[in-house]
């Protein structure tokens, strides 16, 4: 699933740039990410002098697992996920923190100049996007007076929260880009500046799992936004035909992905000094406006 999403993303980006994208492996290159993954697994592992192997391996496992952990609590197939409990929204900040810690540890397990600069940028970026992303995600839960994922899906059976909180949705998309380190916020591994940033010294199996972790992170982020703002797999006729739920879910995820890709396509990488301005100055103002609207609507009793 994660790797297919990578293929969709690559294909869409390529089309924006007038290219064809992956083409040869499988139907229209759909197997290309799988091929890449398998190829990296087969490579000989290179041990770099001064690398803390245990820390690196541990943090990579943590990185992959953090997104998997998050995905467990998202209602992907039916409106209640298997592991859900009453206040399962608090898992979300936990997974974000875990993946950021894992990335930092990965960067610091070898201390070359590229990884040090890259990790420094990563930590700064984390500090900026996390508050934004959490506030945007918290607002819908405030609207519904709940802390549970399945409740928020059920609430949205009438209309998605997107209609009430469009500004929050936009900020969430942008903050998600920052979390996924995609353009314009790909500073931690800006290849034109600091080679591959925090993952410069990784290759082979470790790199394969880093890539997998990134893809999972993308799926997790997109799924989260779909659940919170678009009402998960809710849609016409899901009561009569429950098998429609996952289909709607995937379609909605692809739409969110398309929006992300379009934002990426028109992105110019921000300079490090403009980072706070971009994310905070504009994002927080938008969120405050959004919160105002929300409270007024709540007071009036419309929702």
């Amino acid at each position: 699933m994660a790797l297919i999403f990578e293929w969709i993303e690559r294909k869409l980006i390529a089309r924006i740039q007038w290219r064809v994208g992956p083409l040869l492996t499988g139907f229209k290159g759909v197997l290309q990410p799988f091929y890449d993954f398998a190829k990296l697994l087969l490579k000989e592992e290179v041990e770099i002098e001064g690398m803390n192997t245990y820390l690196a391996d541990f943090s990579i496992i943590l990185y992959v697992l953090s997104s998997v952990l998050g995905l467990l609590f998202i209602p992907l197939f039916v409106s209640t996920s298997l592991y859900s409990f009453n206040e399962d929204f608090i898992v979300v900040p936990l997974t974000f923190a875990l993946s950021a810690v894992a990335q930092t540890l990965m960067g610091l397990s070898i201390q070359s100049s590229f990884t040090v600069v890259g990790t420094g940028r990563l930590v700064v970026q984390y500090a900026m996007y996390e508050s934004l992303l959490l506030i945007t995600l918290a607002l819908p839960f405030m609207q519904c007076n709940t802390l549970s994922m399945s409740d928020i899906v059920k609430v949205q059976s009438r209309y998605p929260i997107l209609l009430v909180q469009p500004l929050g949705f936009v900020v969430a998309l942008i903050a998600l880009l920052a979390k996924l380190e995609k353009p314009p916020f790909d500073l931690p591994h800006a290849k034109q500046e600091i080679a591959a940033g925090w993952m410069t010294e990784y290759c082979c199996r470790r790199l394969a799992f880093i890539q997998l972790g990134k893809d999972l992170e993308m799926v997790y982020g997109v799924a989260l936004i779909t659940t919170v703002f678009l009402g998960g797999g809710q849609g016409p006729m899901t009561y009569d035909f429950p098998w429609l739920y996952p289909i709607y879910f995937i379609v909605k995820m692809i739409i969110v992905l398309l929006l992300l890709v379009i934002l990426q396509g028109m992105a110019v990488r921000v300079r490090e000094v403009f980072m706070p301005q971009r994310l905070w100055e504009r994002g927080i103002i938008m969120l405050v406006i959004q919160a105002f609207i929300l409270f007024i609507l709540k007071d009036v009793g419309l929702i």
Partner: peptide
């Protein structure tokens, strides 16, 4: 465009 991290521009102009 490539150096500023605007890869779509890179591809459009090279086209």
């Amino acid at each position: 465009g490539y150096w500023t991290g605007f890869e779509s521009m890179f591809m459009w102009i090279w086209r």
